[in-house]
Design a protein around this nucleic acid. Sequence first.
DNA 1: ATGAAAGCGCTAACAT
DNA 2: ATGTTAGCGCTTTCAT
Lengths: 340, 340
Amino acid sequence: MSVTIREIAMQAGVSRGTVDRVLNGRTGVKPEIRERVLAIADELHYVPNVAAKALAYHRKPIRIGIVMPPKEITFFDEIRKGIHAAEDELKGLGICLEYAYINNQQADEGATAIRTLIANGASGILFSAIDDEANRVSINEAIEQGIPVVTFNSDIEGSKRSCFVGQDLGKSGEIAAGLMSRVLRGKAKVLVVVANMKFHAHRMRVQHFKNSLAIIGDIEVVEVIEGFDRYEDTFIKLNEALQKHPDLDGIYMATGHAGACMDAVRRAGKDGQLRIVCNDLMPEVEQGLREGKIDFTIMQNPIQQGYRSLRILYDLIFTGKKPESEYQYTETSILIAESL
Amino acid sequence: MSVTIREIAMQAGVSRGTVDRVLNGRTGVKPEIRERVLAIADELHYVPNVAAKALAYHRKPIRIGIVMPPKEITFFDEIRKGIHAAEDELKGLGICLEYAYINNQQADEGATAIRTLIANGASGILFSAIDDEANRVSINEAIEQGIPVVTFNSDIEGSKRSCFVGQDLGKSGEIAAGLMSRVLRGKAKVLVVVANMKFHAHRMRVQHFKNSLAIIGDIEVVEVIEGFDRYEDTFIKLNEALQKHPDLDGIYMATGHAGACMDAVRRAGKDGQLRIVCNDLMPEVEQGLREGKIDFTIMQNPIQQGYRSLRILYDLIFTGKKPESEYQYTETSILIAESL
DNA sequence: ATGAAAGCGCTAACAT
DNA sequence: ATGTTAGCGCTTTCAT
């Protein structure tokens, strides 16, 4: 059988209560005893029993706070599914979830959410919001108070969060390039559409896409268009580009308004003549795939993102198990119409 | 707080021991009391507390038997990874795993494995072996004894197993067709290579591939070659086919020896001129992708298969939660060189 | 056939 | 600062 606090207590010549205090970093233990207990626990390779811990916490479950966009943001639907799946498995295992929905409209939403959750007794936080200074600061504040934070879907870089669970942005750009090179054999010209090159995530995709194409050779990126996530901007700029490059062979929609892109292609009378590679699976992309307007879309496995982030945080709090790497990338997968 | 056996016991006017007997189908309870307890449990929507159950089972963990090919069969490596991941999560949650490795060489290996596991006190079985009558019978025997069985990777059809966790074979054929149609635009000729059309799994892929191509139009399947998983057969037949169809555009390796396929293509001097779509990610396929000899490979998410099958069996035994569907399909994904 | 009670490993409130 | 003890919900052994 595995090692228990009882055994550690006996070997250290103290009570189980004291061992519990030491192992959970509670105050009120003489330093030398603390040392001794820690040493024995380490030597015996003590791992707490999840079931026992969960049962003991049953009266006062550990609160986990979740900061993310509200239900209206359908992009997060799949991520929510993953969180619920993990919640289902962890049901009765001593945790309780509290959600704080934020819109990323005001500057201090993230900070307020974190502070409120901590005030309500959260012992850990799952966080997904824009990568700005205010959020970085408040995450670091939480860490200072000993409350671990796991970011998901969108990282807060340079913060002290335990880890980030999300997509490998570089890889999605590379895969897009790989797909283009396979459907456009030989010399070809492609256009890149992106929402905003100021955002790290958007830039990463484009950069890796270009770099990969450069290695492959033969395919030229004629232009990179910024649509700022607005239909109008995207549509207009794309119209111009399609006129300017009548010999275009493909479009990579790195980020931004896929609907506008398809409309512009149709208006140019190029339906079916251009190879189009997208990211994610918004409703319009799904429809585009079904109708043959889009060839491929690259996914970031949102369900896994939700699931893994909650699991990782649970393990961190309950068993003290640190994630193997600071970056937990979910699988980057390719979808075609037949995948749906 | 949630409903406990204590509450049910009070409402039914019996002891907790009796409630436990009823809820776990143990003998020695008067039928009318059994009825009453069951009714109350149902009415109160009783769900057992996993943590408490796991802790109680700590002394005598529930044994789960796993029947699958031995470590030498590298195809199962990823599946094993998934099983280990689930085991990790379930560690300390009242289970213990026992493996029975079989080679599918002799007729009664599966039956023997199941019988041995049951003799050793298994309360549930994970099963992956060839779909034959002997295995079907022994699975049904296990079920008769109240021991749930979950098949994974390869189903035992018509058996009374609780569910099957594995790939949607039809879908992989359809995706292969979709990929072909995207890389071979317009009129084209493709060849299908399969190990053995007598096997249901192999046939399914080929059928769905052909059906999908028929709908898409334009692409003709010139021949279906059986390689029987042997290098020689595959290589020789493919050589002949390549000579017979000098205007071939692509090859779909539904199942079988991918290495032989690549060698035959090279020998015919067609390297890089044919579009090749494979299944799975054996070492030779991975290398083929890297070297640009293979364009796409279709995956059956083996890690998920291992993970989900163990989780499902655990939930079945511990919480009585039945899987939502008899067929639990793992995601079918597409890989290219850049995905690696 | 049924009840009572001990115990699984851990936490937390209470005692010293 | 440390020990003691009563649970958490369930299983299981021992009485009755």
